[in-house]
Design a protein around this nucleic acid. Sequence first.
DNA 1: CAGGATCCCGCGGGATACTG
DNA 2: CAGTATCCCGCGGGATCCTG
Lengths: 97, 97
Amino acid sequence: MNKSKHSKCPIAKVALLLSDPWTMLIIRDILNKKMRFGDLESSLESISTRTLTKKIKQLELEGIIEKTEHYYTITKKGSGLNTIIKSMSKYGQKYYK
Amino acid sequence: MNKSKHSKCPIAKVALLLSDPWTMLIIRDILNKKMRFGDLESSLESISTRTLTKKIKQLELEGIIEKTEHYYTITKKGSGLNTIIKSMSKYGQKYYK
DNA sequence: CAGGATCCCGCGGGATACTG
DNA sequence: CAGTATCCCGCGGGATCCTG
């Protein structure tokens, strides 16, 4: 994927942001309630420390989550992703349950 | 990512399905109108033949798109993804325009 | 407990050339 | 035009050990 292309298309940007299996799951968790590193680790059973660290850092840089005293919470921008998650959940319920 | 884990969670399934930057863009295109291979290739400027072929095949297997005489169209199951795309688009408009 | 640092492997995916 | 076939490289990400 070439990040410099499609730069005008907002969907491509979002698609790129969500283009790994973990990101949405992390956001969903933090959307529900503030979470510690270990909380996320045990919630996302099979994720490795390294990957979780990187995804978290990326989401912090994007301004989607933020950290306060070892707790991760959702930002305003991050909570906007809720509608996407909801529609994904609805779709998943219907076709992948 | 371990596909065998999180198998009960519908969101994880959808997240996994959409876990590359291209899939959503391909679906969006075909959602708008039936497209030929070359149409997709020129729409998604920087995609390679190989990748496009693989993504298409995967989406056919999932039952999200189907091919008829060199034209790709969306299925019932595939059109259900429209709400996800719409919310992604809305979010993108707001934060990544 | 919350990460950082290293090592290493697999495969996603680009480039290119070829075929029906 | 619509793919298929190879070749090959990068990096995403797991495992493991270390540190504040």
